[in-house]
Computed example of a mutant assay.
Amino acid sequence: MKFYADRVPVALRQLLTDIAVVLWVYLWIRVALWIHDTVEQLAVPGQKLESAGSGIAANLAEASGKVGRVPLVGDELTKPFTGAADAARSIAEAGHDQQEFVAQLALILPAIALSVPLALVLFLWLPLRVRWIRRAGVAAAVRDNPAGQDLLALRALASQPLTDLAKLGPDIAQSWRSGDPAAVTALADLELRRLGLRHRRR
Rank of each mutant, 00 (worst) to 15 (best):
G55Q: 14
S175Y: 01
I35P: 06
R7D: 09
R131N: 13
A183W: 08
E50P: 03
G74H: 10
S64I: 06
A88E: 10
F123H: 08
V116L: 15
H199A: 11
I56G: 00
V21F: 09
S64E: 15
L33Q: 07
S54I: 05
T185K: 07
I35N: 08
W34C: 01
R201L: 13
A43Q: 01
F3V: 12
W132T: 05
L60G: 11
P161E: 11
P71S: 15
S90A: 14
V70P: 14
L128N: 10
V70W: 12
V21Q: 10
A88T: 12
L165T: 06
A186C: 01
L168H: 03
W28I: 07
L151N: 05
L197V: 10
A20R: 08
S178C: 00
K2G: 04
A136F: 04
I19T: 06
A113T: 06
M1S: 13
Q98A: 02
P146I: 04
Q149H: 07
A88N: 10
A182Q: 08
R135F: 01
S64C: 07
H199N: 14
V21M: 13
R198G: 06
A5L: 08
P71Q: 13
Q104A: 09
P117R: 04
E50L: 06
E40L: 05
I108W: 08
A63Y: 10
V22Q: 04
V130G: 00
W28M: 15
V8E: 12
T78R: 15
R135S: 10
D75Q: 14
L49Q: 07
E100H: 09
W176C: 00
D37F: 05
A106L: 02
P9G: 03
A20E: 06
T82Y: 09
P110A: 02
S115L: 14
D86W: 02
M1W: 08
R13H: 13
A139H: 02
R198Q: 12
G74D: 12
P71F: 14
A183E: 03
G179N: 03
A182K: 03
V116S: 11
E62T: 15
D150M: 02
P161R: 06
F101H: 03
A61N: 15
R201S: 14
A58L: 13
K66R: 15
A113M: 07
L122M: 12
Q104I: 06
I108T: 09
A57C: 08
T163R: 14
R134T: 04
R200W: 11
A61Q: 15
R13W: 03
A147M: 05
A156Q: 06
E40Q: 00
A186W: 04
L109K: 08
D164Y: 05
T82G: 08
R7A: 11
V10N: 04
A136Q: 03
N59P: 00
M1G: 13
L27A: 15
T163A: 15
D150E: 09
D189M: 00
S178A: 10
D6Y: 07
T82Q: 12
I108E: 01
S175D: 03
A43D: 01
L168W: 05
V142A: 01
V116N: 03
P80N: 07
S51I: 03
L118E: 08
Y26R: 07
K66F: 15
G169S: 03
E93P: 04
W132R: 11
G74E: 12
L23K: 01
K48S: 02
A113G: 04
A92V: 08
P71T: 13
V70M: 15
T17L: 14
R193W: 04
